[in-house]
Computed example of a mutant assay.
Amino acid sequence: MSRIGKKPITLPKGITVEISKDNLVSVKGPKGTLHQQLHPDMIIEQESGELTVKRPSDGKLHKSLHGLTRTLLSNMVVGVTDGWQRALEINGVGYRAQLEGQTLVLQLGFSHPVRIDPPKDVQYAVGERKSANDPLPVFVRGIDKQVVGEEAARIRGLRPPEPYKGKGVKYLEEKVRRKAGKAGKAR
C-alpha cells in the first residue's frame, strides 16, 4: 500500500468537492474553484469530511497512480483554502522589479524592461530591500500549484543566476554554487 496514497485528506469547513463520473474533480473554497481530470481507474470516495483514494488493483500503473492522485487532490484543497506562493530573489546592480497594475516590470540588464502579464488566478507581489546590497524579493501567488510553479520558472528563466557574481533571478531557497574567476586560478 502506498504510504502517501492511503492517507485521508481532511476537508476544512467551507470546502466542497464534487466528483463526477470519470473522476473529473471540482474543489470549491474561499479562494476560488479548481477543476482537474484524474485517472478514471482510481477510486475517490468522500465521506464525513474526508477524501480517500483507493486503487482497484495492485498493478504497476495503479500503484504509481495511487500516491499521485492523492497528492493532486491534496494540492487542490490547500490551493483553494490557503493558496500557493513561490518566492524569487532578484540580485544584481541595476536589477529591479516593480508592479504597474497587475503587470510585473523587470529590469534585468537588458536594453529594455521586461513586462510580464499574469495568467488567470495568479498575482505578483514585490517586497522591499532591507539594504542596498540585499536581493529584491518577488512573490508569485495563486491557487493552482502547477501554474504558480510554472510562472515562477518562467520568470527565473529570463535571467538565471550566473555562478561568478550570483547576478540574476533565483528561487529564495536555491543555492548558487559560486565559481572562482580568473583571479582564483592557481599559478
Rank of each mutant, 00 (worst) to 15 (best):
M1P: 13
M1S: 14
R3D: 13
I4P: 07
I4V: 15
I4A: 13
G5E: 04
K6Q: 10
K7H: 13
I9D: 09
L11F: 06
P12Y: 04
T16F: 09
T16K: 15
V17K: 05
I19W: 05
S20G: 04
K21F: 15
N23Y: 05
V27M: 05
K28M: 06
K28S: 12
P30Q: 13
G32S: 08
G32K: 08
T33F: 07
L34S: 04
H35F: 14
Q36G: 09
Q36I: 13
Q37L: 12
H39M: 10
H39G: 07
I44D: 12
Q46D: 10
E47T: 14
G49A: 05
E50D: 04
L51S: 02
T52K: 14
K54T: 01
S57T: 14
G59T: 08
G59F: 00
K60I: 11
L61K: 14
K63A: 13
L65H: 03
H66M: 01
L68H: 05
T69E: 09
R70T: 09
R70L: 08
L72I: 02
L73C: 00
L73E: 00
S74G: 12
N75I: 01
M76I: 04
V77F: 03
V77R: 03
V78N: 06
V78C: 01
T81S: 15
G83K: 02
W84D: 03
Q85M: 14
L88W: 02
L88F: 03
E89A: 12
G94P: 01
L99S: 04
L99P: 09
E100T: 08
G101E: 06
G101V: 08
T103K: 09
V105M: 07
Q107A: 15
V114M: 08
D117C: 02
P118M: 08
P119Q: 08
V122L: 10
V122T: 05
G127D: 07
G127I: 03
K130Q: 11
S131P: 03
S131N: 15
D134C: 06
P135T: 06
L136D: 01
V138R: 00
F139K: 03
R141W: 01
G142V: 03
D144H: 04
Q146D: 15
Q146K: 15
G149L: 14
G149Y: 10
E150F: 12
R154G: 03
R154L: 14
R154Q: 11
I155L: 11
R156D: 04
G157C: 09
R159I: 09
P160V: 00
E162C: 08
K165S: 14
K167W: 15
K170W: 01
L172K: 15
E173L: 10
V176A: 02
V176Y: 03
V176G: 08
K179T: 12
G181R: 12
G181H: 11
K182F: 14
G184A: 10
R187S: 04
